[in-house]
């Protein structure tokens, strides 16, 4: 089943008197449970693509369905709800709430889910479990400023996963980390992908990251120029079928 369906996606940004065409017509389908890597040079449109999938940005043209729901016509409130209930985010620069400690940061999206039906105790329990899974069980009452970059990124992963989203989007999650920490983070994401069956879509510049991906989408100048991947990639491509080269 496709968790993401994108058809003829275009995204233009006006820049003074000119228009920057960030995406020039993207068709992409992603099956549930995938571990998808989007690669490409700077300015190729990776982040824009992720932002549209994550309902952070809306396309100038085309159709996007997340979990079968068309998002291009939704208002801010419903887009926010999709981000809250269906999507988890891991940002390049960690982006934790500085005034909350590690445990509170992870609890944060659960506390926003008023209709989640969880009690305070259940919320705490689930957050603690996620933190332990990312190996930070002994840092729960630390503030973000007291953690290293790798630790903060792991908190961001825990926060992205705590709501059990259908999709986790990660924009260059290892860009600000040393290679060893980056590898640890990727291993963790892959492990969660395999155990929780969560779909991961991440952008990267890092060629080491590719070995973890079940599918690699190469993007340049706003077009998908290739879909490939080591091992499972071909199988994924075949299975993922609709994921195809850029249409233009």
């Amino acid at each position: 089943m496709n968790i993401i369906e994108m058809k003829s996606i275009k995204k233009d940004y006006p820049l003074g008197e000119t228009v920057v065409h960030a995406l020039r017509g993207i068709d992409l389908d992603v099956e549930e449970g995938g571990f998808i890597s989007i690669i490409g040079p700077s300015g190729s449109g990776k982040t824009t693509l992720l932002n549209i999938i994550g309902c952070i940005d809306i396309p100038s043209a085309g159709s996007v369905k997340i979990g079968g729901e068309e998002i291009t016509s939704l208002d801010d409130r419903r887009l926010t709800n999709i981000r809250l209930f269906k999507v988890g985010f891991i940002f390049q620069t960690f982006n934790l709430i500085p005034v909350l400690n590690l445990l509170e940061n992870v609890e944060f999206p659960l506390l926003l889910m008023k209709e989640g039906g969880l009690t305070k105790g259940e919320i705490r329990k689930r957050a603690q479990k996620c933190i332990e899974e990312v190996g930070l069980g002994s840092f729960m009452d630390h503030r973000p400023a007291e953690l290293s970059g790798g630790q903060r990124q792991r908190v961001a992963i825990a926060r992205a996963l705590v709501t059990k989203p259908q999709i986790v989007l990660a924009d260059e999650p290892t860009a600000n980390l040393d290679s060893e920490t980056g590898a640890t983070i990727l291993s963790l994401m892959k492990h969660l992908n395999e155990t929780e069956k969560t779909t991961f879509v991440f952008s990267t510049h890092d060629s080491d990251v590719l070995k973890y991906a079940s599918q690699v989408i190469k993007i340049r100048d706003g077009h998908i120029i290739d879909i490939d991947g080591p091992g499972a990639a071909k199988k994924m491509k075949k299975k993922a079928g609709p994921a195809k080269r850029g249409t233009r």
Binding site: G54, I56, D76, R77, T80, N81, R83, L84, F85, G88, F89, F91, T93, N95, L96, I97, P98, F108, P109, L112, M113, R159, A160, T163
Partner: peptide
Amino acid sequence: VSEIGMMRAVGAHK
């Protein structure tokens, strides 16, 4: 902006 934008990204309403 970063803090508020991030809150919005993870599902905080206006």
